[in-house]
Design a protein around this nucleic acid. Structure first.
Lengths: 224, 224
DNA sequence: AGATTGAGTGTACAGTCGTTCACTGAAAAC
DNA sequence: GTTTTCAGTGAACGACTGTACACTCAATCT
């Protein structure tokens, strides 16, 4: 078995008329191999890093010939940026989920961390990719992640501004706080990814304590 | 110019007897090309990542033939682990420097952050390497960094235990605090590395505020 | 003085890589 | 029904990779 035959070309050639193969429009088919390329790339990149990707290997896993790659992406970097955007979308989904959980401050921390850990578990590859390339990456991919993460920190700062003890904080102090939270949570994400799934409770408890400690300082903060 | 000719073989062949070339023992010479290999590898790895290293390119930069590599390292991974150890040594040096600065708590934060930023500026490649491979790496290199960083966090926890408001903290709480500090400082290191050198003051000021905020919560902490 | 060691050399090989080019054939457009 | 479009094909390329092997020759040891 050399290639994955995602499009089922072999089967389609002789079975298409007899078996109930779904009739596919050309765009659907194109989109499908595009997805196959992205999925293969994400899997490889989350394991060995984006820099170690091989165009040939990706196309092999996607079930197409190497040259077919260029029908979908102009370069590897373009595919990388697409992966960043998709990963960022799931990250934003997570944050939105954490934001919309009702409850008090202590419970909110608990609920948010819980949302985070569950999301990391169910979208491991996206988080691996983001963490990996945020620090280890190069070029367009790394830069894009940096920009998006800065944007995301800004959003978090805005969210924080609506909380009780933070209403009168300056924009810059809020950004600093958001930054601190993000870096702490990023470290938590890495711990979750590296640990065996059984250790989740321990790690999330640790993350909760870190956030609690940070927020304990908030009432006593005065900007200088 | 194909190779760097670190050992000056070309010159030595005909000038050795006339010019005052320092007489070198065999071990000295070996150590020198070993260093050249490590330096070339560190430079490349800090720019493009360890995974993107090429044995041939490293040896070319070191001024030796590719196969000579194996006289010094059994594999690329072995060289990688050596780089981790060396980088970790400079990191420990930095921490020791920060620990030994006298002064009160507020000044201590300021002095420590200052030590950090100066160290990052003067040992940029080591810090690039550590940050890169801690998150983006694979295999032995990444694992070694993880272990060493955990050890280092432990040391920091012990250091923290001697401070005023932290004497009665549990070991686990201290480790959590150390962890939080390390992750915040790691993010700071990355900011320093990515920013143009002129922005140092801004970044260090930010780092100071983060640490101050964290320590503001300490007096109000009660373990659950 | 002669034997030994070992860092560095040069050639060669089998793989993999990204990219080029002309092509096929079915879906889409006319 | 004919033409056009274009995702996917397959061979070929030049460049680069890590490593095996037999070698040289100066520093070291005896």
């Amino acid at each position: 078995m050399d290639r994955a035959d995602v499009n089922g070309v072999t089967a389609r050639a002789d079975v298409c008329s007899t078996a109930m193969t779904a009739p596919e429009t050309r765009n659907e088919r194109k989109e499908r191999t595009r997805r196959a390329l992205l999925d293969a790339a994400l899997r490889q990149a989350s394991e060995r890093g984006f820099a170690a990707l091989s165009l040939r290997e990706i196309t092999k896993q996607a079930g197409v010939v190497p040259t077919a790659f260029y029908r979908h992406f102009e370069s590897m970097d373009e595919l990388g940026v697409t992966l960043v955007e998709e990963s960022m979308r799931t990250l934003r989904t997570m944050i939105r989920g954490a934001r919309n959980t009702p409850g008090g401050s202590a419970d909110l921390i608990r609920a948010s961390v819980r949302t985070l850990s569950e999301h990391v578990r169910s979208h491991g590859e996206h988080y691996w990719f983001l963490v990996r390339e945020r620090y280890g990456g190069t070029g367009a991919v790394r830069q894009t992640i940096g920009v998006e993460l800065k944007l995301l920190t800004g959003e978090l700062a805005v969210d924080l501004a609506r909380f009780e003890g933070l209403r009168d904080w300056s924009t810059d102090d809020l950004r600093m706080l958001a930054d601190l939270i993000v870096s702490a949570m990023l470290a938590t994400v890495l711990e979750l990814l590296e640990a065996r799934p059984g250790a989740d409770a321990e790690i999330t408890a640790d993350a909760e304590r870190k956030l609690r400690l940070i927020f304990l300082g908030v009432p006593h903060w005065r900007s200088r």
